[in-house]
Amino acid sequence: MTAMIRVENLTKTYVLHTQGGVEIPVFAGVSLTAAAGQCLGLHGPSGSGKSTLLRCLYGNCKPDAGAIRVRHDGTEVDVASADPREVLAVRASTMGYVSQFLRAIPRVPALDVVAEPLRALGVPLEIARERAATLLERLRIPERLWRLAPATFSGGEQQRVNIARGFAAHTPVLLLDEPTASLDARNRAVVVELITEAKAGGAALVGVFHDDEVRAAVCDRVHTMRDRE
């Protein structure tokens, strides 16, 4: 079992300076490991810090203490303390992230939104677009939408574009925040398939799955987060 992410004693508290310096403790002393070929589910009540933990792993949130060691390019990078350019390098080739909501970029068509992570790895445009098209097709985004910017898509369509983008580059680590939240049963089944394929390909996945059925289908282990103390 190869550990792809080793989280040690992670602590996070939000301090809201604009609201009288209110402190909101999110979690303290979290340690966990994500292994290659497995999916780790983060489980816990709303507000227990599942999304914040995922965002910390991706470098989008800065923890107050602890380490997040990600296996990257034959070494370990601590995302919690690395330089911005090191974190970006980890994201480009090692760690993908499917957020809850797609952040649409004006004028960029859906096909290129999905192809972009491949382009960043130096994959030629045509091949990247081909792979993007395959994913959009599997996720049932009608072909007439591929050339349009996703800003005007429905919530479910945007989420599927986001999922396609996350799975496009076959990164060895993939973080998933409620990837099936607004999908119907058929599309949920496709996402379960994609996760199963990624695991078979040796990827380590960490995800928050609201849906019990999906969680049971994809997770090898579950890390339970306690409510705020």
Binding site: V15, H17, T18, G59, N60, C61, K62, P84
Partner: peptide
């Protein structure tokens, strides 16, 4: 200072929090 999305999504300094909010 920091990674763009981290500074904007999880600002730490009171002034950055004010800017973002």
């Amino acid at each position: 200072t920091g990674l763009t999305d981290q500074v904007l999504d999880d600002p730490h300094h009171p002034y950055t929090q004010l800017l973002v909010s």
